[in-house]
Amino acid sequence: PHYHLHLLVHGSRGGEIHPSLLSLVDQLKRLKNRSVSIEALTDDNPEQIDIGNRSVFLVPLFLLPGSHVCIDVPKIFNRLQEEGQNIKLFPFLGSFKPWLSLIDDLITSQRPFVKPALIHHPISSDTASVFLKSLEKFLNIPLYSWSRWNQDTFKKEKNYLPIPYLLTPN
């Protein structure tokens, strides 16, 4: 049998989850026949996963190795292990090759018409800088943190089309 998927997302205040993520869960259940649950980091009282002794994949739906990936995800992994789940930690989404290929396809489909640039959440650790450099090399388009994007006076001359590197609106 397939692993149960426990998706981990950022969420907004009070543990609320954006409708596009809820629709993702619904489609995984309906179209792919998967057993899925979803948890927001902003939920103070997450429900316990109740799936018997089935194996679980903890899938962090984060795009960059910021503090959520480096600190919060391991904490939640430990909590689920302590609750007795037979659980494996999946790589964070942004480091998973099929996801990067999907983003690359999106960029390629736009490139004949526009010059895309990826606009991301500012992150500052060494790990994050190394990751961003390799991402920029892989996608072969400029990456800007949104604070830098807002300061960059040349962007209009360069005529970039900004692609927000966010799963849901922020």
């Binding site: 954006h18 995984l28 179209l31 396809d105 999106l106 927000p164 966010l166």
Partner: peptide, 22 residues
């Protein structure tokens, strides 16, 4: 500007990626 999951090919692509996990 749309966030990624509001773009149809990304949404469908992610359903496929996660749906195909073991």
């Amino acid at each position: 500007l749309k966030s990624l999951l509001e773009i149809d090919i990304i949404h469908r692509g992610l359903v496929n990626i996660l749906g195909n996990l073991p």
